[in-house]
Design a protein around this nucleic acid. Sequence first.
DNA 1: CTGTTAGCGCATTCAC
DNA 2: GTGAATGCGCTAACAG
Lengths: 346, 346
Amino acid sequence: MKKTITIHDIAKTANVSSATVSRVLSNSEYPVSPAMRAKILKTASELKYIPNSLGKQLKTNTNMTLGVIIPSITNPFYSSVILGIEEIARSHNYNVLLCNSHQNPKLEEQYMKTIFEKQIKGLIISSISKNAKLLKQLIDLGLNVIALDQEIDEKEVCRIEFDFRKGGYMSTTYLIGKGHRNIAYVTSPLDRPSRESIYQGYLDAMGQFGLEPMLEEAEAEGEKAFVDGIYEFDNGKRLTGRLLERPNRPTAIFACNDMTAFGIINELTLQGISVPQDMSVIGFDGIEFGQMITPALTTIKQPDYEMGRMACSMLMEMLIENKKPYLNFMLQPQLIERNSVAGREE
Amino acid sequence: MKKTITIHDIAKTANVSSATVSRVLSNSEYPVSPAMRAKILKTASELKYIPNSLGKQLKTNTNMTLGVIIPSITNPFYSSVILGIEEIARSHNYNVLLCNSHQNPKLEEQYMKTIFEKQIKGLIISSISKNAKLLKQLIDLGLNVIALDQEIDEKEVCRIEFDFRKGGYMSTTYLIGKGHRNIAYVTSPLDRPSRESIYQGYLDAMGQFGLEPMLEEAEAEGEKAFVDGIYEFDNGKRLTGRLLERPNRPTAIFACNDMTAFGIINELTLQGISVPQDMSVIGFDGIEFGQMITPALTTIKQPDYEMGRMACSMLMEMLIENKKPYLNFMLQPQLIERNSVAGREE
DNA sequence: CTGTTAGCGCATTCAC
DNA sequence: GTGAATGCGCTAACAG
């Protein structure tokens, strides 16, 4: 294992001071004669110098990495978000430290601390923990935070939100417009604000048209539940089973997310009920796999990739231009019409 | 924004030396009297001390983060790998710096350099670049590398491999065992060793049983192709279209990966050919979505999550115990029988 | 047991 | 333009 080369080594072999070497190699504004600059550059490349960013960071208190805390990377929604974040980060020469919180508040706190200890100045977080005490402390200490889909009651964090309620409303009115009157809402436990909002949107629409809501909600999930991507799918299957046992079957089912919708379609198909001829299904998320199944899933698109890009762009503004854009974005839902919903003549 | 507090601040308010503070707070073996330890711990917590790991890292030349370079996080295979890596890393208090190379060799090199500059000592990489020059240099400088699925000709990197050829063979013989004789292999461009190996396995089996191979290969992909998750799916659809125009249709199709298989099934269904009654389809990868479609996809499981865990465990051994396990693992394929393959009476 | 000192690699005053 | 000196926050060698 070779010895690592520092600016001092370069200084020595080039017969200059390490200060000058630093000025040249860090692209400082400071004037250095062309001849000397050339010499330093030459010996640096001959010695195959690779800078140690730790020294620089410690000195300048800057840090070219971003922290990202999300529930789980295996959820395709979040992996798209990350893709968007990383793309913007990279364009600014930033890197991404990825942390999966697995919906575990303890783990989340631990990661927040680690991120701060690493002197990272920017964090994008999709948290569940309502406990913003640590977060508040870190913000006071200079951490810049962008929250995704969160109800963090912290004035100093920017939020990128998504209008879940409107999405729920939009989806339901679409089904109503298609002639459906008996519309069920199938959902994971309503213990997250986002899920609650979608449900509210559903209720808004049903109420507006004087229709009777029909809720099918899963039992509260354990901590482990989220880790397993198949969880939502199984939920969809199980809840559909329950739904079909009811006296008045719905003609359309609205699922709280695409994975659940997959489960619903799967179970219906299994039971000989064909989608959308016998029953319509609409999802929520707009993940790519929706177009790979048969029938292709009609759904509400939540702009994941764009969300990541926007969050990171805002963070970059805060970090680089030192702006504090104390404003929150509300991203709008978009209906993707595919083939899992059929019209219904009354 | 509050001032950050250091061990010196603690030392001053507690009337001790910063050395002692360091010894206490870094859980050093060094003996410190219980009284003093208590006092230091108390003032540290009162001052809400959060350590600056940069200082420590610079001093001790250790670094609690790992670098991971993979083609794309939106590929579910890789997101499972990362999940496995992160899990093991976390259990050792390590963090993960995630880098998507997007199959771009330039970007890959850039990331490798950044990782090294951050003084990261461990890297898990799934690369495409055959150019190991930079990698070799970094290894000489002390970087520990685990390669996934790679043909890196570097004696000093451990490789976690997967027996693609056996997987291809296994899949094909399974179809043959089910009575199929006319078996097509549909694949993304055979420009990656892994794909080539699967194809070889297919040829092995076909040859052994004296059957005529039938290859349908996509045109070489552009750099952008990989970013888009839908690419493989479209490939499957397109190639199926071509396949069906052939004079002798296959009775079974073997796809180079699950996404492609989804495309194949989608296209067949669209054309009124039902799977598996009219035609059987088998995939390769074993991603979770395979069980969410109808019919559930029969496929060859490539142990993604386990691969990540194993890679990270090996890396941890190298990093912590300073072992150099110069040995390569070859993970074995496993058949997952579901519902997309039917038997065929001759 | 405790404190003093030095230095990790770098950028940045301040002299010249 | 250039160099010597200082210190970012921390740990480790040495002295007491």
